[in-house]
Amino acid sequence: MKYLCLIYSNEQVLHTAPDSPADPECFAYAQSVQKSGRMLAAEPLESVSTATTVRMRNGKLSITDGPFAETKEQLAGFYLIEARDLNEALQVAGGIPAARVGSVEVRPVRQLNL
């Protein structure tokens, strides 16, 4: 089953912490998940200041600079993984170094029947 691990952190903390996405520990962990065969994709995101939020209401498009809501933690990146079950996905998420300074939300990916 596929799981999406969404990494949330305060941007200032995440990018100045010793375990920032550019840190060798983060890179090594991503490589270990890749080598285990569970990694489907993983990417860090640009700063929240580059975000644009799009809404469609009553046929009218609304575009707003920035994130959807002001929060202390921002979406910083993700891992898309393959895991046997939620417990295995949680173990992978718990090993993500950014979980020490932020949080990792784990969600099953729904299958689309196209």
Rank of each mutant, 00 (worst) to 15 (best):
M1N: 13
M1A: 15
K2H: 15
K2V: 04
K2D: 15
K2I: 06
Y3A: 15
L4R: 00
L4P: 04
L6K: 02
L6Q: 09
I7F: 00
Y8N: 02
Y8S: 00
N10S: 08
E11I: 00
E11W: 02
Q12H: 02
V13T: 06
T16E: 12
T16V: 04
T16R: 01
T16M: 03
A17H: 10
P18R: 00
D19T: 05
D19M: 09
S20E: 05
A22H: 05
D23H: 14
C26L: 05
Y29K: 05
A30L: 07
A30D: 06
A30Q: 08
Q31V: 07
Q31L: 08
Q34A: 10
R38P: 01
R38G: 09
R38E: 12
A41R: 01
A41E: 09
A42K: 03
A42D: 02
E43K: 04
E43S: 14
E43I: 01
P44K: 00
S49N: 11
S49W: 10
T50V: 07
A51M: 06
A51N: 07
T52V: 14
R55M: 11
R57T: 02
N58A: 13
N58I: 03
G59K: 09
K60M: 13
L61R: 13
I63S: 00
D65S: 14
G66A: 12
P67W: 07
F68L: 14
F68D: 05
A69W: 06
T71M: 03
T71I: 08
K72E: 02
K72L: 07
K72Y: 00
Q74S: 10
Q74R: 03
A76G: 01
G77S: 04
G77P: 01
I81M: 09
I81C: 13
A83M: 11
R84H: 11
D85R: 07
D85E: 14
D85W: 14
N87Q: 12
A89C: 14
A89I: 10
L90G: 09
Q91K: 13
Q91W: 05
Q91H: 09
Q91G: 11
V92H: 08
V92M: 12
G95H: 05
G95P: 10
I96R: 03
P97H: 03
A98M: 10
A99M: 06
G102F: 01
S103L: 02
V104P: 01
E105N: 06
V106Y: 08
V106H: 09
R107D: 12
Q111A: 15
Q111K: 15
Q111N: 15
N113D: 15
L114M: 14
